[in-house]
Design a protein around this nucleic acid. Sequence first.
RNA 1: GCCCAGGUGGUGGAACGGUAGACACAGAGGACUUAAAAUCCUUUGCCUUUACGGGCGUGCGGGUUCGAAUCCCGCCCUGGGCACCA
Length: 905
Amino acid sequence: MADRYEAASFEAKWRARWKEADLFKTREETGRPKFYGMDFFPYPSGAGLSVGHCRNYVPTDVLCRMKVMQGYNVLHPMGFDAFGLPAENEAIKRKTHPAPMIDQYSATYRRQMDLIGVSFDWSRSFKSCEPSYYKWTQWIFGLLFKRGLAYQKMASVNWDPVDKTVLADEEIVAGRAERSGALVEKKWIPQWFFRITEYAQQLIDDLDTVDWPEGIKTQQRNWIGRSEGVQFTMQVSDSSTPKSHDLEAATPVRKALAFDVFTTRIDTIYGVTFAVLAPEHQLIEEIAKFVGAEHVTAIRAYQEQAKSISEVDRTSDTREKTGVFTGAYAVNPATKNPVPIWIADYVMATYGTGAIMAVPAGDQRDLEFAIKFGIDVIPIQQPPLEFFAQFPVAAEDPQAALARYLEDPKEFPTAYISKDAPLINSGSQNGRSVPEAQESLGLWVETLGIGERKIQYRLRDWLISRQRYWGCPIPIIHTKDDELQLVPANQLPVELPEVDNYEPSGDGTSPLALIGDFVNVTDLDGRLGRRETDTMGGFACSSWYFLRFCDPDNFEAAWSKEATDYWMPVDCYVGGAEHAVMHLLYARFWMKVLFDAGLVSVREPFARLQNQGQVLGLTPYRKPAEGETLGQGEDGILITPAEAAEMPPEDVIFRWSRMSKSKGNVVTPEEAVESFGADALRLQLLFVAPFTADVQWKNDGMSAQVRFLSRVFKLVDELKAEFEPAWERILGFEELDDNARKVRRYTHQTIRKVTEDIDRFAFNTYVSSMMILVNNVNDVLKSSTQRSRALQLSLSEMVESLVLLLSPAAPHSADELWEMLGQGGFTWNAEWPRFDAALAAEDMVTIAVQVNGKLRDTLMLAVGAANEEHESAARALPKIQGYLDGMTVRKTIIVPGKLVNFVVG
RNA sequence: GCCCAGGUGGUGGAACGGUAGACACAGAGGACUUAAAAUCCUUUGCCUUUACGGGCGUGCGGGUUCGAAUCCCGCCCUGGGCACCA
């Protein structure tokens, strides 16, 4: 039956033909524009793809297919992110080796992607764990190393006791490992880093040059965390005896003992009443040498405590400030007053200088600390009276409260921070505005030579080493003398040895360290050396794969510049928002390094980025039985759909959550294709919601698409007998009757809408505009018993255009319909329909007629009617006359082709 | 706490500052059928009216405008991100 959509009867046939014809092989013909469309590099999990993953691949496929038909050379590749923890953990669990496991899983992925008709060029595919790929990952590591951007140092790192490896900052969420969920511990071991901080400013600046969702850009800017401020040196003094305003006779200073602090509010320096060092700060050792024994004991105890406390506890928002006084004092350079030096863990060792000048009057954290430990607070700005409304004790008499505040602010537990209030108690800066004082004090610090204005970033260097087997080996040899030698390019790749046992040891070294053949090497000078046994985290592999796709079979180099110059940047990159600060930041960083090395010609890898919404599956839970405990944040116990079906409905709670195997809420593409068809699945994925929105997936949505496709089949079936392939040549000579005119108008309006919608990722309205076309044409057909030649030709144009417009979304059906029309070959090779504005234009428009902005009637006018015509026609409407009767028209607003609005009074 | 996104019928969602609810789903009624499925047609924001019509409506409260779902200000709620970053 050719008058309905019966997926089983033709979809597999077309997939076989596409494969036979090698249809999706990347075209690289001269004289065509290029388009590089790509999805995020997936890790092939054993669970296979769900329809949720398809929501990523189908829209990109639609865009790429349209670009092919529009004549572009299109690069639309797919590969697999195979190295890394998830693969290794899975392999350990299954007591197998990751390599064959990954081969099997990626084959499943490929089969599923093919099943839904995604037009990947598989001839360019690779896995990041193949030596022919990671050879070049190592080569890029070498490039970074030679440029001083890869280095090893001892570091206190995030140690995941479950996965037995260190993790990057980006992989830690609220003190827990994002992947394993384990509480992260501190460990002090040698680690490899990439100096991404070197590129902090460029990574911020170049965000302005890419077309990405603003939310992702903002997240990256926040993550990089640029702050402008002043860094200056505070001298350590011997005693707390103040206090001379005479520079020469200032507080005696301990020679050469000093520390740097960074502040964004140098204007508040007169309010500094203490200084705080992070517990790990190096100066503490020096201080311990001269302060009393009782201080040393307290310091040591506090440092121990700080080391052992977990990240979660340390940052808990209910936690009170803790700290100890060191017994030493520093000198406030503005007042020359001595201020006590404290140690507290609310100051991070890893940000800024690991030490701060504390201004309790102007900083909530400093204030809490000062109140708890009885340190002076000097007000540096005068709060307005409204400020005191928040304090019950002060609300009745704010004037008196202000007086008390100026005397001693400690009574009021909220710091007063303002960018507008002028300064007080600030010596020469009194009465100045914040910006004025910042300017003048910044200059003062620089003139005095104790510091400088500085930009500080929150971003830290990228921790790349992992103490795990399944990763790209770091191509470094440690010589006897503890020198680091880079393995020369001609000796790459450093291949991962085949081993039986690769489970992590947990002692902070990689299992590779136990493999003598791997570890023991001769160094470049022929002496005995030791191979680096850490591997690179998976994000290294995914930081350049888009370059390899440009030139995947190159054995001489990672890529030829010619190839990347042609294809890069990726014109449209599609994937989930969860990679906002990891992959997307790392890849940008590598690209900039490669640009600086002259290896690529663009600074940004991804010109445009689109994030699809998640697909949620209905997940059944049951109410907990008596005595059962619930997991954190859960209000029920997860059950299988089968269990749910057997329970009384009132005992089952349904929740929408992201499709995952463990939740048992996955719908696979196989199921969907089997029950409804690949094209029905594709259309529903596009239609169900805007691309960026989350979707609550219900299978029966696909039956609506089956109906729609069936209407298309029926329409084509009805029209195929009178289809005239040469319509374009003949149609120009025909006089168009009303129906023919209408059909052409609908056709061209749809061509315009579809083309625009696909380009702007509005796939839901793309599908609905095709539905509208079909509905409208069916109406015309119903009303015309006799079809004129002009109408037949217009319908030929319509039906051909419809099939081609449908092709990106429902390629199997489009090719089947194309064949029904007697057209040879594939819609893939056909030209995208051309839009004609004159044909799309309406000749009559509906004008809204309003009185005082309220819609009262409508009228029809010819397009291009004069304003006077609008007004007179509107006034002539009986309903409108009723509203205007006895009123004065004060104003008439006319928007030609849209509306007339009478303002009456 | 800070930052981002979003709140529109029974549901998913449309809508360059200009006729709110396109397109679908679900519901109701009907045609075809011995019957059902499938398909097709009509109808469906809420209130009011026999009807014509009228009123109210895009989270809440203000504002700008001839005109606001859309722009501005202040809130509330939901989702996501960051979180003692000086």
